[in-house]
Design a protein around this nucleic acid. Structure first.
Lengths: 164, 164
DNA sequence: CAACCTATATATAAGAG
DNA sequence: TCTCTTATATATAGGTT
């Protein structure tokens, strides 16, 4: 995507492929993180590369990925229900409502887990955190910073309005 | 990333957020697909959005995601072995070798599965394929096209050399 | 290697229909 | 809401250090 347009097929040259892998892996994870923040959705990315990384790359964390995929196993049941035509719209509405609750609970849970991790580790022995935890933690901190930032702006705006 | 720089925080406006979600989801999946092809790695992306999609977005397929995540559960054992310091380099080498074999087997398996799906569906009743299968199939076709393309170029080159 | 450097290729925010 | 357009923001290929 730069300097030259690259053909979309396996890169034979080892060095080039490894370089591309590192760059694009970083980019992919960044995009996933942005989507997650901008649209408040849960997302995970898993990359297996036996050649480049000794361990699979998992974003945002092993724990999250596991949770997402185990939720995933429940899907067929929901899908079946969605396919049922009997009183379809009513059922759909109920499902949507339950999904909304579920989502809130997941979010709450996620924050709780992460906050715990944060307190366990900040000021502690330093590097007991795994990379995945750091990723999740970084996300949490970003979210909190954004919340603070928004509140600050609101306060500044109301202050400015009072002055007028 | 265009026209205006967007602040990296939750998009409050429903329409805007939904539009952004659709665009970025598409982009993310494209990037994952490209990484997978360019570097020959297995990758999967899962996005849960109770607000925007009624179903989670899964790339490349439900089957693949399941497989990747269940392989994932085996990790702790491997990680433990990696942490063992006894004859570390030798053990690592053996692990690398086994991982390489495993990777080849997975790839072989993946192709087999997909080819089966392909034959089951092409020329059949038309739309019994799920979106995820289509994604995987599309990947398989791309791979085959690339292979054909490469072989064609080789033949052309050898032909040109003969002419000289 | 890894980190940094730019010319280009892509992604995408807004706006229009 | 969806699609198309287009100005900008980002990502990144190929080098350099």
């Amino acid at each position: 995507m730069a300097r030259t347009r690259v053909k979309l097929s396996y890169i034979t040259n080892d060095a080039t492929r490894k370089a591309t892998y590192k760059k694009r892996k970083k980019g992919l994870v960044k995009k996933a993180s942005e989507l997650s923040t901008l649209c408040d959705v849960e997302a995970c990315v898993v990359i297996y590369s036996s050649a480049c990384d000794s361990q699979p790359e998992v974003w945002p964390s092993t724990v999250t990925a596991h949770r997402m995929l185990s939720n995933f196993k429940e899907m067929p049941a929901i899908e079946q229900r969605n396919r049922t035509v009997t009183q379809e719209s009513l059922v759909r509405k109920r499902i949507a409502k339950v999904e909304e609750q579920l989502k809130r609970l997941r979010e709450k849970n996620r924050r709780k887990e992460l906050t715990q991790v944060m307190y366990q580790n900040i000021g502690g022995n330093g590097n007991t955190m795994k990379k995945e935890d750091l990723n999740d933690l970084s996300w949490l901190i970003d979210q909190n910073l954004n919340a603070i930032d928004n509140r600050l702006h609101m306060r500044i705006e109301s202050f400015v309005l009072q002055e007028k």
